[in-house]
Design a protein around this nucleic acid. Structure first.
Lengths: 212, 212, 212, 212
DNA sequence: TATGAATGAGGATTCATTCAT
DNA sequence: GATGAATGAATCCTCATTCAT
């Protein structure tokens, strides 16, 4: 039973309060430890009120995911890369991703956790990863056809692998708090990526080219 | 409290039966769903017997991890790489890793899950990753000093990132069942790795070989 | 954690029903034998309801103690002793005490039992006894200064000892069912008390009465 | 099933070890908390061995009681009171009792506890108290007939009450650790006792009698 | 006799969810 | 819509006791 979109203004407010409270509680307690009554307590409503809007913990979690996705999929454009400088594009994408990750680290950890716990969320995430990889695989394919990327790598696998590299490293740094210089992170990830595909790296770290 | 080593042969048998049963149950039900009584039922012993050997679910899981680690850390030597051919070494390591992963896919998924659920296991895994990365970082440093690897990457970050790439891709393939040609997997991962460090073919960073 | 005062009338009723049921069950089964589910069954509520109001058996027992204390500390005034006739005062106090004891014999036995089982209740009882003895010790001291009580007894020890005498004898009679004529009990206890302090009849320590 | 008296020398040793261990464990943990396996562990035998000698915790406790009673009922004679000086007799008895109590305080607390828990022990103790009181009642009766004790007290009640006074005060002092000067204790208890019966107190605390 | 592994009954407790007010 | 008391299913875990070795 999906909740009917709240009809009244009061209902809308209550629903929003529950979502906000749920995010607080989930980030504080983790998905498993969080109890419905923690959420209602945090929201300042009676426990029964929860069920006016959601069927269970998973459903309110989905609502949070949806809200955040809205944010993370349409980030305010912060960098614009001109032309066809792939390396710069990758660098920009990585910087943007790592910034967003850092800002939402607790939530990202939560996504990881829930994906491990709830098969529905696992599938959701798998599909997102797949879609993303397919887009990137197309890019890689084109670059290979244009002779600008190593033709020896399988585009889809490479797309998955490089996404995994960035995503998992971000996870390790922020969530598992591996001690790593965060300054160097974006640069090195980008360089690894560019190298991995044998893109012309000239523009990322301009070689000490030309004569002095 | 760690379980005292069983003193009799019978006890040893029962303990082993419990561990085997636990593995079956965990793989079938997942860590969260598994109940202690599922394990004892599977092992064919009374429920109380469990507590003769383990304090709780987490502890028997740790025993499983330990047993598997024994297996995965001392794999039968399958490939031997001669000399200082780093690319071949990496290729061999990747092949070996992916093979082991494939053989223990369900268990590896379980490890991921439990690491998400139990902070102690999370920490355990973090430390293992850290140790592994540090070893690889040393290798990368050496190669950089020898002019055989891209000096532009941070060794420790690269080590983490490349491990993450391989580990997470293996996870995606086997556990999340991304549809990817498993044949091409090892080759592409190795190539990405080698490229990422600019190790290959002597052309990028020509070994300080022959005369100038 | 102390239970929050029930907020609704219904809650108040349920809580009271649980306390009443607990008293019945405790008196019937004893503290150790009583199970939480006996109490809820007696109260006619679901087992989980217990935990809405109490953390455990000990806490509901404390609530009973409190309720009874309310009763025993503010007894309806039955006897009023005029002036400074200490012997009459003691007699009245003893009669009142023994009457209350008889009326709550089962519960008093329960208090003894729980004090033996739960350190918190033991301490509670110890403190009550100490406070009571200190009050009586002051009285005895005064009487000694006035030459109306044997100066050879230590006031505090005597206060403890005489309380113990009355309290323990009441216990023996009612709880352990020693076969003793209950009529004579109050008289003899009072006489022992008065004698013990040499208060009586003015003959032992003649009040500083008439002219020398 | 009562244990057959152990037949072999080894058996006798094991049984004694169990009793000694039980006393240690009971004093350390209390009767309720003590587990059979604690006792066997303390005795250094296997848990099953317990049942070769005892049916359960209560039975080994009974064995301890028996052993101690042996000690406390036939104390080495430390004071001998000549003639018919009742007050001196009482003083000696009290001193002896308090000394024994102090020496076995933990065990006495245990007896109290178990009497509250196990009806059989409660009855046992009741009977002992009754027998003791009856003996004392006879003494009091005789003294009354001889005009040496207050005829206004009921002999049996007084016997119970005065025993209760001494016993319970000892309990309070040693077990509940009321803060009381232990030096004054025996003197005051004896004086209260003597006073209570209006015995001639001359010999206990010699009155500053006759002219100098 | 001694061992110690195995047994399994038994009760506490949590918390998602319902529903009368 | 909101409330919050009531529900009760579902597992965990202990430990006295047995019995094969």
């Amino acid at each position: 039973m999906v909740e009917p979109p709240a009809r009244t203004r009061r209902g809308e407010r209550t629903r929003a309060a529950l979502i906000a409270a749920a995010r607080v509680v989930f980030e504080r307690e983790g998905f498993l430890e969080a109890r419905v009554c923690d959420i209602t307590a945090e929201a300042g409503v009676a426990s029964g009120t929860f069920y006016t809007y959601f069927d269970d913990k998973a459903q309110i979690f989905a609502a949070i995911v949806e809200a955040v996705q809205e944010d993370m999929l349409h980030p305010p454009v912060r960098e614009r890369v001109e032309g066809d400088d792939v390396a710069a594009m990758i660098a920009a994408a990585n910087r943007e991703y790592l910034r967003a990750y850092a800002e939402n680290a607790r939530l990202m950890a939560l996504f990881e956790q829930v994906a491990q716990i709830d098969p529905e969320f696992r599938e959701l995430r798998r599909r997102r990863g797949q879609a993303f990889a397919e887009r990137n695989a197309k890019l890689i394919s084109r670059l290979q056809r244009e002779g600008r990327a190593d033709p020896g790598v399988d585009p889809l696998i490479a797309a998955h692998a490089l996404s995994a590299m960035v995503g998992r490293t971000a996870y390790a740094i922020h969530v598992m708090q591996q001690e790593i210089d965060r300054e160097a992170l974006a640069d090195t990830l980008t360089r690894l990526w560019v190298n991995a595909l044998r893109l012309d790296s000239g523009s990322v770290n301009p070689a000490p080219a030309g004569p002095a």
